Deep mutational scan, measured.
Amino acid sequence: HTCEKCSTSIANQAVRIQEGRYRHPGCYTCADCGLNLKMRGHFWVGDELYCEKHAR
């Protein structure tokens, strides 16, 4: 898989955010504040991922 955020190959663990879309665990972050979304879930606003606070 290729990380959709940093565009590099994912060798080990990948986070599947949608069918066919993956990120490194470290790239699974809010587009606004950079908070890691692991164990928090994500919210779509347009084509970007946000934490609950910044999705509003």
Rank of each mutant, 00 (worst) to 15 (best):
residue 33 C to H: 01
residue 22 Y to K: 05
residue 37 L to Q: 02
residue 2 T to H: 14
residue 33 C to M: 00
residue 23 R to I: 01
residue 51 C to W: 00
residue 55 A to D: 09
residue 3 C to H: 04
residue 14 A to T: 03
residue 50 Y to P: 00
residue 9 S to E: 15
residue 54 H to E: 03
residue 4 E to H: 13
residue 18 Q to Y: 11
residue 46 G to A: 07
residue 45 V to K: 15
residue 8 T to R: 15
residue 39 M to L: 09
residue 13 Q to K: 03
residue 51 C to R: 00
residue 34 G to K: 13
residue 21 R to P: 09
residue 7 S to K: 01
residue 3 C to E: 00
residue 12 N to A: 09
residue 1 H to Q: 01
residue 7 S to V: 08
residue 55 A to F: 14
residue 8 T to E: 15
residue 20 G to K: 11
residue 18 Q to W: 06
residue 4 E to Y: 13
residue 4 E to D: 10
residue 55 A to P: 04
residue 19 E to D: 04
residue 35 L to W: 10
residue 37 L to W: 01
residue 28 Y to C: 07
residue 22 Y to D: 09
residue 26 G to T: 14
residue 40 R to M: 13
residue 36 N to T: 09
residue 33 C to S: 01
residue 2 T to G: 00
residue 12 N to E: 15
residue 25 P to Q: 12
residue 22 Y to Q: 11
residue 29 T to K: 08
residue 21 R to D: 07
residue 14 A to R: 03
residue 31 A to Q: 10
residue 44 W to N: 06
residue 14 A to F: 14
residue 43 F to K: 04
residue 10 I to W: 03
residue 9 S to D: 15
residue 35 L to G: 12
residue 1 H to G: 06
residue 5 K to M: 10
residue 21 R to M: 12
residue 42 H to R: 07
residue 26 G to M: 12
residue 48 E to G: 13
residue 26 G to P: 11
residue 5 K to G: 11
residue 5 K to T: 13
residue 4 E to C: 12
residue 42 H to Q: 11
residue 5 K to L: 12
residue 50 Y to T: 06
residue 9 S to R: 05
residue 32 D to T: 13
residue 4 E to A: 06
residue 35 L to R: 07
residue 40 R to F: 08
residue 27 C to R: 00
residue 25 P to I: 11
residue 55 A to N: 07
residue 28 Y to Q: 06
residue 20 G to R: 08
residue 8 T to G: 14
residue 42 H to N: 08
residue 21 R to S: 11
residue 32 D to K: 08
residue 35 L to A: 13
residue 2 T to E: 02
residue 44 W to V: 12
residue 4 E to G: 11
residue 15 V to L: 06
residue 56 R to T: 04
residue 41 G to S: 04
residue 40 R to S: 13
residue 35 L to F: 14
residue 2 T to N: 14
residue 13 Q to W: 00
residue 50 Y to F: 11
residue 31 A to G: 12
residue 19 E to T: 10
residue 44 W to I: 15
residue 36 N to C: 09
residue 45 V to T: 02
residue 51 C to K: 00
residue 4 E to Q: 08
residue 43 F to Y: 08
residue 20 G to A: 06
residue 30 C to H: 01
residue 23 R to F: 04
residue 5 K to D: 14
residue 32 D to A: 04
residue 49 L to R: 00
residue 17 I to K: 04
residue 50 Y to E: 01
residue 19 E to Q: 10
residue 37 L to S: 02
residue 4 E to W: 06
residue 32 D to F: 12
residue 42 H to G: 05
residue 41 G to M: 04
residue 16 R to A: 14
residue 37 L to Y: 04
residue 18 Q to N: 06
residue 47 D to K: 12
residue 34 G to E: 08
residue 32 D to W: 07
residue 38 K to Q: 06
residue 13 Q to G: 13
residue 48 E to T: 06
residue 32 D to G: 08
residue 53 K to V: 12
residue 52 E to R: 06
residue 15 V to C: 05
residue 19 E to V: 03
residue 18 Q to I: 15
residue 39 M to C: 08
residue 44 W to P: 14
residue 31 A to Y: 07
residue 27 C to F: 00
residue 17 I to L: 09
residue 45 V to N: 08
residue 19 E to H: 05
residue 43 F to Q: 06
residue 36 N to F: 07
residue 32 D to S: 07
residue 5 K to S: 09
residue 44 W to F: 12
residue 20 G to P: 02
residue 49 L to Y: 06
residue 2 T to L: 00
residue 28 Y to N: 05
residue 41 G to W: 01
residue 50 Y to S: 07
residue 31 A to H: 06
residue 34 G to P: 04
residue 36 N to Q: 15
residue 26 G to C: 12
residue 7 S to I: 11
residue 15 V to D: 09
residue 51 C to F: 00
residue 42 H to A: 08
residue 9 S to H: 02
residue 15 V to Y: 03
residue 16 R to H: 11
residue 41 G to Y: 04
residue 52 E to K: 07
residue 37 L to T: 04
residue 43 F to P: 10
residue 10 I to E: 12
residue 4 E to I: 05
residue 10 I to L: 04
residue 11 A to V: 00
residue 43 F to W: 13
residue 4 E to S: 12
residue 52 E to H: 04
residue 56 R to C: 13
